[in-house]
C-alpha cells in the first residue's frame, strides 16, 4: 500500500477504518418492487417476475440498490472530491429473499486502496453490506467498490 494518495495517508486510513461498522438499516421487501426491479433488469425467468410462481423471490441483484443513504462513517476522512463512481459490485446470494421479508443490513468498510488507471490516480473504498432476515439468517452480501479521484 502506498504511503499516501494526495493529501490523505491511505495506510493510516486503512488502519483506522477497515472493519468499522457504520450503518444499520431495515428494508421491507415489497412484492411490486421485486417485480419492477426484475423486469427493469430484462429478466425473463418467472421466479423473479411472477408472484404466483411457487419459488417467487427477489432477483439476486435486488439488494444492490438497498441503501440507507449514508455513504461513509461519521468522521471518515475526505478522500478526493465528488460523490465517486461505482467501480464494481460483488453479490453473494446465500438464501432466496421472499416478498414481505424484513431485512436488516449492516454496512462495514471492507477495504481501502489506491491505484492508477486510464482515469488517473484513484482511491477504492470497498463497503460490505450484509443482509439478514427476521430469523437472523444471512441472505445476501454486497461488496461495493466506490472509486474516488485522489
Amino acid at each position: 500500500m502506498a504511503e499516501s494518495s494526495g493529501s490523505v495517508n491511505i495506510a493510516e486510513v486503512r488502519a483506522e477504518w477497515i472493519g468499522v461498522e457504520f450503518d444499520w438499516a431495515e428494508f421491507i421487501i415489497d412484492k411490486d418492487a421485486m417485480i419492477q426491479w426484475a423486469s427493469a433488469c430484462g429478466e425473463t425467468d418467472e421466479r423473479f417476475i411472477d408472484p404466483s410462481h411457487s419459488d417467487f423471490q427477489a432477483h439476486p441483484s435486488f439488494t444492490t440498490h438497498c441503501m440507507s443513504g449514508r455513504l461513509f462513517p461519521k468522521n471518515f476522512p475526505q478522500i478526493g472530491g465528488g460523490f465517486g463512481i461505482d467501480g464494481g459490485k460483488t453479490v453473494t446470494a446465500h438464501l432466496p429473499i421472499r416478498a414481505g421479508s424484513k431485512l436488516t443490513a449492516v454496512t462495514t468498510i471492507a477495504d481501502i486502496f489506491d491505484k492508477t488507471g486510464r482515469s488517473g490516480t484513484m482511491v477504492f473504498i470497498v463497503q460490505r453490506m450484509e443482509f439478514k432476515d427476521e430469523t437472523g439468517a444471512l441472505v445476501s452480501t454486497v461488496d461495493w467498490k466506490m472509486i474516488k479521484k485522489a
Binding site: G42, E43, H59, P60, S61, T64, V91
Partner: peptide, 10 residues
C-alpha cells in the same frame, strides 16, 4: 453499473 450486472444475471 448495477444495471449492467443485473443484465448479466438475466
Amino acid at each position: 453499473g448495477i444495471m449492467s450486472q443485473s443484465l448479466l444475471l438475466a
